[in-house]
């Protein structure tokens, strides 16, 4: 039977958007998405899709992308399909609105994984660039009771096990685990592939499976949020930069050195 791989992907506000466009609505404690800037697939999740597709290229696999959210920009969320994933499952419900609670999200995603019959391998981005929480993937592994390897920069399936080059502060370690397993990946995995024209055409024809919360059979008490958000604000910066000038750029560099010397910094 072909290897079954799930990739968990999230739709996020474009993290590269200009800082000036970043606005918070204090009342609702939310970031207001600027209307002119479309959302994107979370960058690390694109790395996860890439990791899954490399395994598919090498050994063959059926790759399913799964996402949870209150609503989706379908053209954005079809990107995993246009890159080469086989299926897209969207968990879409108003109940998924405004939740930054890892426990809630992981419960929903884990129940979707179960409903889909389980996977040999689940690959996730290390964290989402909106809440930077880095908890949901590890939580899903815990809820499903599968092996968990985090911060991969290379992921390979060898027979019945997954072999991961896992980042450590001064290099990497090679870690292996028997399938089923969950692996999180980082940008060190390398550039995600660009969708080909053929991929884009194929993705256009594919329809995502869409499930609501009630389709998933998660008990309400399992969804009790574990975290309360009290406030969300933009931190104030009050630094004043002293600009060093000179006759030319090199001279400005020399003057900078003098300045740092005066300040006893060098």
């Amino acid at each position: 039977m072909a290897l079954k791989i799930a990739v968990l992907v999230k739709q996020v506000l474009d993290p590269e958007m200009p800082v000036a466009a970043f606005r918070i609505d204090a009342g609702t404690k939310r970031v207001v998405p600027p209307p002119s800037i479309p959302p994107v697939v979370n960058g690390f999740d694109e790395n996860a899709v890439e990791a899954a597709l490399r395994i598919k290229d090498a050994a063959g696999a059926a790759v399913t992308a799964i996402s949870m959210g209150p609503s989706f920009a379908l053209d954005v969320m079809k990107k995993p399909l246009s890159m080469g994933a086989d299926e897209l499952v969207l968990l879409q419900d108003q109940a998924f609105d405004n939740t930054s609670d890892a426990f809630f999200t992981a419960q929903v995603l884990a129940s979707a994984v179960r409903k889909l019959g389980g996977f040999d391998l689940i690959i996730c981005g290390r964290q989402a660039s909106d809440w930077d929480n880095a908890q949901v993937p590890l939580g899903v592994a815990e809820l499903l009771g599968v092996a968990c390897i985090s911060l991969g920069k290379k992921v390979e399936v060898q027979g019945a096990k997954v072999v991961v080059e896992r980042l450590i502060p001064d290099g990497y370690e090679v870690v292996e685990a028997s399938l089923p397993a969950l692996v999180t990946v980082s940008n060190e995995l390398g550039q995600p592939r660009y969708p080909t024209l053929r991929g884009i055409m194929a993705a256009t024809r594919k329809r995502p499976t869409i499930w609501k919360l009630s389709d998933l059979g998660v008990a309400k008490e399992q969804l009790q949020p574990r975290i309360t958000l009290h406030n969300l604000f933009v931190p104030q910066r009050s630094k004043v930069c002293e600009m060093i000038e000179g006759d030319d750029a090199a001279d400005a560099g020399r003057k900078l050195a003098m300045k740092l010397r005066e300040a006893k910094l060098i």
Binding site: F22, V31, S100, D130, D132, P225, T228, H230, F233, P235
Partner: peptide
């Protein structure tokens, strides 16, 4: 109560555990 940077440090969230 914890202050944690979110959105890459563009915002700070004040959170507590339930």
């Amino acid at each position: 109560m914890a202050n944690r940077p979110v959105y890459g440090g563009n915002a700070v969230a004040v959170v507590s555990c339930n």
